[in-house]
């Protein structure tokens, strides 16, 4: 059989594309299923318990509730202390631009 290497490469590429398309389709179907089942249940939790934040980083107040944190967090525990919780490096600063605009 001639050009066997090119054909093998093309076959492997097609298999990779099929696997990727399969994963993409699977992720879409999981997303659809969770959107119809789990998301409404989570929304119910948020509504009933009046939750404002995700329970991801529990190490400090301003990482547990980034949307409710003081304006000057993470410096709240000492005027000149630098960020000392690792999660603070992951959590970007909240966008306050519209609040500032509303205040003006």
């Amino acid at each position: 059989m001639i050009l066997i290497k090119a054909r093998v490469f093309l076959a492997i590429t097609v298999i990779q594309v099929i696997v990727l398309a399969g994963l993409f389709t699977w992720s879409m179907s999981v997303a659809r299923a969770r959107t119809t089942e789990e998301i409404p249940q989570k929304q119910e939790l948020v509504q009933r318990l009046e939750l404002t934040d995700l329970a991801i980083w529990t190490e400090a107040r301003y990482t547990r509730h980034p949307s409710q944190a003081d304006f000057f967090a993470p410096f709240q525990d000492g005027p000149s202390s630098l960020e000392h919780f690792p999660a603070g490096s992951v959590v970007a600063a909240p966008d306050r631009s519209r609040v500032a605009a509303a205040d003006r």
Binding site: V30, A31, T58
Partner: peptide
Amino acid sequence: FIFDASLFASVVKGWSVLFPDFRVTPHV
């Protein structure tokens, strides 16, 4: 989506003792 981004967990976790699995709804 299958291993819940477990390789990133140790980086993103920080000092949190209670840390949830990233069992996220797939969105691409």
